[in-house]
């Protein structure tokens, strides 16, 4: 073997090694599945921004964002290994914790629960919770809006016989027809859509926000498994960093265009003007106070949520939910 050949061989080998190392660094090798709670809409703007702006990729993560739905359960998928991270409602988290699911809450996306009740101002004057007496109130039986409403009613010392709870679906006709006085909506999505229709029809409407009456039931949170936390803490840290950066970027007013474009890639049915309004509302829910960090886990609100679940016999005994929240 000549010296020239040896030099050529070593140079080729070194070049190959450098290329291999560079490609490992340039392309993410950690495949991550992130299961959302619901379909991709404005409530997931930060998630899709983290993906479209390349924040996950910059952290060396190849994240597949998967839409949720009523038949999807992120916590189950975490345990079965079909997902690495997921979004779950607080009541799901608490129920799972009560049944021994090994999960950890790593971020709380909404600081204010988007759930509200919309009503016609010409039909209902709502100054205090006691004004709910005798009204027909829409709730989704079995979901958190039922527990929240029952908590509000018990706060106002209104018994179940003094109101009529109406089982709601996605069809708002009973509300428009006036069969139901209050209808549950999400402030940053449905409320914007219905509000636009009602304004066009010249109707005055208002919202009943549980938070105004001291009921702070936690909404959606990002969860992962204890196994993931123990075995891949670095992946959890990088994922969270990219995700929160996505949310931070999404709610900054100067990034409105790119945020709306990111959502529009998935949600093609919602009109642009609605998306603009929905984004404004989402900002308020994600960061109501500038001093509060995005993704902040509100332990007090979690404790209250757990208490509500106990009061309504959704769990039999306390789970000490704080143990399932990632220390901040």
């Amino acid at each position: 073997m000549t010296l020239r050949f040896k030099v050529l061989f070593c140079a080729t080998l070194i070049t190959l090694l450098i290329t291999l190392l560079a490609s490992r660094h340039a392309f993410p090798d950690e495949k991550i599945v992130y299961r959302l709670k619901w379909l991709i809409n404005m409530s997931t703007v930060g998630d899709v921004m983290a993906e479209s702006q390349g924040f996950f990729r910059a952290q060396g993560l190849d994240v597949a964002i998967k839409a949720g739905g009523p038949e999807r359960d992120a916590i189950r998928e975490l345990e079965l290994g079909y997902a690495d991270f997921g979004v779950a409602s607080a009541d799901q988290v608490i129920q799972a914790a009560a049944k021994g699911a090994p999960i950890v809450v790593i971020a709380q996306l909404f600081q204010v629960n988007p759930l509200q009740w919309i009503y016609f101002k010409d039909k209902l004057q709502l100054n205090a919770l006691s004004d709910l007496r005798g009204k027909t109130i829409g709730v989704t039986f079995g979901k958190n809006d039922e527990f929240i409403m029952r908590t509000l009613l018990s706060q106002a010392k209104i018994s179940e016989e003094q109101v009529k709870l109406f089982s709601v679906r996605l069809d708002y006709t009973p509300f428009y027809k006036g069969q139901v006085d209050l209808w549950p909506v999400y402030a940053n999505t449905q409320a914007v859509e219905i509000g636009q229709k009602l304004r066009a029809a010249g109707k005055a409407y208002g919202f009943l926000s549980p938070g105004d009456f001291g009921v702070h039931f936690v909404a959606n949170s990002v969860v992962t498994s204890k196994r993931e936390m123990q075995e891949r803490p670095d992946v959890v840290r990088r994922f969270l960093e990219a995700l929160l950066k996505g949310w931070q970027t999404a709610i900054e007013p100067q990034n409105s265009e790119s945020a709306i474009a990111a959502v529009q890639q998935y949600d093609r049915d919602t009109a642009r003007d609605l998306l603009v309004e929905q984004l404004k509302e989402t900002r308020r829910l994600v960061q109501p106070e500038a001093t509060k960090a995005i993704g902040h886990i509100d332990a007090a609100a979690w404790k209250q949520t757990e208490q509500i679940m106990i009061d309504h016999r959704q769990i039999e005994r306390p789970v000490e939910i704080v143990r399932f929240l990632m220390p901040q």
Partner: peptide, 17 residues
Amino acid sequence: AASAGIGYSIRIALYQS
């Protein structure tokens, strides 16, 4: 969509996971 029967109860159970 109904609000009675076992299908409705299953739906509620599904909401509650």
